[in-house]
Each structure stands twice: as structure tokens, then as C-alpha cells.
Amino acid sequence: MTDRDIELEATAARLRTTFDASFAAPQLAGAGGDVDVLAIRIAGHGYALRLSEVQAVHAERKLTPVPSPLPALLGLVGVRGLVVPVYDLRLMLGYAAGPPPRWLALARAASPIGFAFEAFEAHWRLPVAAVVTEMTSTGDGQRFARGGVQTDAGPRSLLHLPSLIESVTKHARPNSERAREERR
């Protein structure tokens, strides 16, 4: 039996123990509460989404393209009887166009809006202390970032979905209404 076999057996035993322990241990909450975030990847960069701002997560939904002056609007998808417009976070964050994104996050809003991204990495339950309000990093995507989260793998920008919704909504209104607002 090789070292690799021993390692595999140890991993299996650890998984089994952890799985059993998760059901045996009492439910504990953090002192200041926890924050659920979704770790995603856009144009090779890591980002995070607050789970509280997300209504649902889907993968490989059938997308129906529609003509639009907005390059970020990929098309429409049907989710539980609703027609949801889907925007490409890559383009919205200012990155160059890439392959069609696979993942879709529905943002909580009056009318659901979907944001597509390349990859879903993980669901993290982080302590509140891990959430920071200011991030030193800059980039194209920082326009919609509201702070960040500190993880073992390093800091990660926390995208603010309401800002994205507002941006999309602002560009989606008709030109006349938009001019009126601008005159006001």
C-alpha cells in the first residue's frame, strides 16, 4: 500500500467523521452573528456576493438572446414562471467579453434580475468581523464593490447587487424618461 493510498483512506475517514460530527454537534451561533457570502469568479478575478442580496442561484439555464442596446444584457431566462433578464457581470464590471457565463444569480428586487458569472466557487459563512467596509484594491469592478471580505485565501471584493440593479435599471428606462430626470 502506497502513501497515496494511505492518504486517501485518511481523507475518507476524516470526511466520514466530520459528516457524523456535524449531525452530532449542537447548533452554535457566532457571537456577533455570521455573514453568508457566495464566492464567485469573474474574468479570472475572485468576488463575493452577500447571500442576503441573492434570491437564488442557478447553473446552465437556457438563455434566450434578445436585441438590446445594452451589451451586458445577455438575454432572458425563465425561472419559476418568471421571465428574468440576465446581465453579464464581466461586461458590467468593465472586463472584456469572454465565453458565455455558466452561472446565474438572481438578485432580490421587486422584479428579479439575473447576473451571470463564470464560476461559482463556494458558499462561505463568515464572521461579521471578516467583512470590511473599505478595500484598498482598485480595478474595473470596484465601481460596484462595497467593501470586501477577508478569507484564508486573501481579501475579496464584495459586489453590491442593489448598485448593479440600479445601474441596470437606469440604463433600461426609456430615453424620454431619462431626459426628464436629467432636466430635474
Binding site: 447571500l51 442561484v57 447553473a59 458558499h123
Partner: peptide, 14 residues
């Protein structure tokens, strides 16, 4: 898919 379902279930539970 299980992960997606779990995330969505978490969202729904929240």
C-alpha cells in the same frame, strides 16, 4: 446541483 439546491435552500430558509 446539490450545492446549488443547498444554497437556494439556505436563501429560502433565511
Amino acid at each position: 446541483q446539490t450545492n446549488i439546491l443547498a444554497i437556494n435552500a439556505t436563501i429560502e430558509a433565511a
